[in-house]
């Protein structure tokens, strides 16, 4: 570019630079849009293939691993059977197994937030989001898929708290929530549901479930007789620790 003297020259140069930048940004934007579009095509095609050619893909081990890699890279779930007639009627076929894997995956992913206790409804919504609107998953489907997991022990169960149905993915043996409650109880010897919810910022379902388990285990005792009318959960095991038996 030829350089021209004076303020006019500078201004033209600046304007030209602006123009270039604008074009550049435009191109960049179009490029990203194009790529997104192509990625979307890629994704939908892969999903289509995963569903249609499942058996063929399985038969060829070398191709299968490449297909798997593609799916992982562009974010396609390779588990994508249709819920067929037989699957619904007899519960056979891969559909419910696949759904089971997806359900456990969601539970694993959300565990840091909810401590392994998730509302069935919420689970369904998350599941449908993943299934890319091809097919809705009902709560009944979820329950059926979960029942398929029963073979692997009772570590995964559906419990009812009030009217809500919750899915618990952490068995009592591995649940660390109870430790937190015990720690909380150490201060006064008892806790209330509200206190647990407030101090640990848990949902009420999570708090009630944990307290109920402690009650079943014989670690907690209920006291309904207090003036404020709130149920207190006493923990003799913790309180006896803080003021030793010596004073009996």
């Amino acid at each position: 570019m030829r350089r021209r003297p004076g303020i006019g020259g500078l201004q033209t140069a600046a304007a030209a630079r602006d123009q270039y930048r604008l074009v550049g940004e435009n191109v960049a934007k179009i490029r990203t849009d194009m790529m997104k579009e192509q990625l979307a095509t890629f994704r939908s095609q892969l999903e289509e293939f995963a569903r249609k050619h499942k058996n063929d893909i399985r038969k060829n081990p070398a191709f299968r691993s490449q297909f798997h890699e593609m799916c992982a890279k562009v974010g396609v779930d390779p588990l994508a059977s249709n819920k067929g007639f037989w699957a619904e009627l007899l519960g056979i076929g891969d559909f419910y197994y696949e759904l089971g894997v997806q359900i456990v995956e969601i539970c694993l992913a959300t565990r840091p937030h909810n401590g392994g206790l998730i509302n069935l409804q919420e689970l369904c919504i998350l599941l449908c989001q993943r299934k890319s609107d091809r097919e809705a998953v009902s709560e009944d489907d979820c329950l059926r898929a979960i029942s398929k997991l029963k073979v692997l022990g009772s570590g995964f169960e559906v419990i009812s708290v009030g009217k809500k149905k919750l899915v618990r993915s952490v068995p009592t043996e591995l649940n660390k929530d109870h430790n937190e409650i015990l720690e909380l109880a150490q201060a006064q010897g008892y806790v209330t549901v509200e206190e647990v919810e407030r101090r640990l910022s848990w949902t009420s379902g999570r708090a009630i479930d944990a307290l109920d388990t402690l009650l079943d285990e014989g670690l907690a005792m209920i006291d309904d007789g207090h003036r404020d009318g709130k149920r207190r959960y006493w923990f003799p095991c913790v309180s006896s620790n803080s003021n030793p038996v010596a004073d009996t």
Partner: peptide, 8 residues
């Protein structure tokens, strides 16, 4: 948990 392993 065995069920977690199943998923993973």
């Amino acid at each position: 948990n065995l069920i977690d392993v199943y998923c993973l």
